[in-house]
Design a protein around this nucleic acid. Sequence first.
DNA 1: ACAATACTGAAGTTATCGCTTAACTATTGT
DNA 2: ACAATAGTTAAGCGATAACTTCAGTATTGT
Lengths: 111, 111
Amino acid sequence: MLHDPAQLDLMFQALADPARRQMVDRLSRGPASVSQLAEPLAMSLSAVVQHLNVLEASGLVRTEKLGRVRTCRIEPQALRAAEHWINERRLAWERRLDRLGDFLAETKDEP
Amino acid sequence: MLHDPAQLDLMFQALADPARRQMVDRLSRGPASVSQLAEPLAMSLSAVVQHLNVLEASGLVRTEKLGRVRTCRIEPQALRAAEHWINERRLAWERRLDRLGDFLAETKDEP
DNA sequence: ACAATACTGAAGTTATCGCTTAACTATTGT
DNA sequence: ACAATAGTTAAGCGATAACTTCAGTATTGT
């Protein structure tokens, strides 16, 4: 259920923005509140919340609110899905190159 | 030289569009001309060329023109760089979880 | 030489993005 | 009770993105 093309779309779109990638990077070192995520970013808290919503909609980040603080954490399964998409394409290409190499090697010294 | 944040930015931005991912997908099965790339896409050839330029600027695709046909192929190194970025963040998170698990296991049955 | 092919480039349009400000709600600390 | 903290929501705005059409340029096949 993670290969849903619509979800993949949201994930890559989410990763396309440098601020959002910075947020993911921060979260890869551990959970954080919204203000903690915002702290290194040169933009309003409001803007950060909007980025966070994009990340959450994409499935890359999950958040949980306790009292007045919203704690955010990475969803590794979603990261894995994006990773997997790229990996499959790259491997398909590289396997193709290998087969081509074999073919050339076999054909080289023939009658 | 592949971890240049600007290049990473271009790559993720390039992958954010479904049409461009479809083009990358097609190219993962082997080189193709611009028209071949355009064929399954419901848009003008001109639009495809624009997408292709984005892909090329990002380093994900390399093209070469012979006569009147431009042949496009995937650049696996660039794909690997994007893959790597995601992988590092995911692993950082998972290692963190592991350490946390170890800590809890050690602390569990103590005086 | 002429027509068809395979792009290329510019201009214009519409929609979406990434922000800002401002006003608001809910929780917590004194 | 009051103020400070933490986040939310809506409106608006300028910039960019994803197209379109149309007019052009090389190349190639007949």
